[in-house]
Design a protein around this nucleic acid. Sequence first.
DNA 1: GCATATTTGTCCGTATGTATA
DNA 2: CTATACATACGGACAAATATG
Lengths: 240, 240
Amino acid sequence: MAQDLDLAQPSAEDTLGRLAADRDLLGRAGTAQRVAEVLRDRIAEGALPPGTRLSEHALGAALGVSRNTLREAFRTLVDGRLVVHEMNRGVFVRTLGPDDVVDIYAVRSALEGTGLRAATGAAPERIAALEAAVAGGEAAARAGDWAEVGTADLRFHRALAALAGSARIDEFMNRLLAELRLAFLAMPSARGLHEPFLRRNREIADLLTAGDTDGAAAVLERYLDDARRMICDSMRADGA
Amino acid sequence: MAQDLDLAQPSAEDTLGRLAADRDLLGRAGTAQRVAEVLRDRIAEGALPPGTRLSEHALGAALGVSRNTLREAFRTLVDGRLVVHEMNRGVFVRTLGPDDVVDIYAVRSALEGTGLRAATGAAPERIAALEAAVAGGEAAARAGDWAEVGTADLRFHRALAALAGSARIDEFMNRLLAELRLAFLAMPSARGLHEPFLRRNREIADLLTAGDTDGAAAVLERYLDDARRMICDSMRADGA
DNA sequence: GCATATTTGTCCGTATGTATA
DNA sequence: CTATACATACGGACAAATATG
């Protein structure tokens, strides 16, 4: 029972924003769960780009786990839509199409819109989380760290949905944004993808603290429309 | 590779309303997937009530599958929140608490509300699905089939969320209602649980076809508040 | 509190079917 | 069309954790 998990490099910088704040709250994690988390991270980083075949033999050897354990981890990833399972062919890192992006942004609109409508009367620390995310994005932009701008952007919109105060909405939003990362990976430049929206996030946060939910909702809708269009256009240009 | 799946009895009546219209669209299903589906059905029926331990040895023998395959099926059920996995202790059918019910109804409000707001401009066949579900519930009530009234109710509200036209919202709603069934199982009478809400569903459908989305939204909110209260009250009375 | 039985966690080996070069 | 590689699924093994007397 000696698990190596060799591929788990230091990774000291991702202590914050851990998306896996799920069910390891009180209990230790099993091997399959840890394997799933490692693979999730590698996929999000782009180390395992869309279309990559996840060979049971090769991955099992690399991670030092048995094929049985690996297959259990795969089930979790399939449920998270990060990989697809083709019968008798194996599992592959998912490749998103424009239709997926359209649907994801429709759900974002529903979830973040729900959060906005719940903003009046939301706990003040949730509003503070919004402000912190916006400020973090702006600081990262000044430092030229566009990857960090991207994660701050996701953090801001996660905080937007979290205004609803529902654990299940939070989890759904997490899964959704993890899936959306697959589309981000196909984009040419992180800067071009995230920079134009820094100002919109600031606007939304300011309008919200001023109590203007309708105004914030309007800006949010334009944000989502523009971002969706940008990603879909890039996808179609890439495919042509 | 001879799979029995003995527990899969005829079940001729559940051809409609199959919740598992997920990913067996074009490919055959693997054993683990079929096992997960069987267990899902048994849990929804109440044959495996909340708190039941799902022993690997016993279940594997009963279903004629190996422990490895069974464990893969468990992963899927864990992700669907139908069972909980306690490390080194096994998996148990989930027991919902009042806080879970509160959260589920908050999400229902968000999802069904989103559907309502998208009603104007939704495809006419989606509106027809609403009407069909309401009519089905009324017919079942006249026949005294309260279990069927319950599934018609779920079908109606699933159709409500489906007005948004998003595949991911549909899937989320399915998972949510499957989870909610766990709470229904603990209620004393299916009739008392569903009968009071037949009239509300009718009202919502009529207001929607008349184009009064705001009116429909108001009725929906009262529906959800009352249903949540009823279930939570019953839970607390049960636990005391 | 301790010894024992049961059950899970994880690995390995292997037979069979399926897809692909 | 055959050969090869791989996924599917089973069964057995053993350590570790948990439940039981």
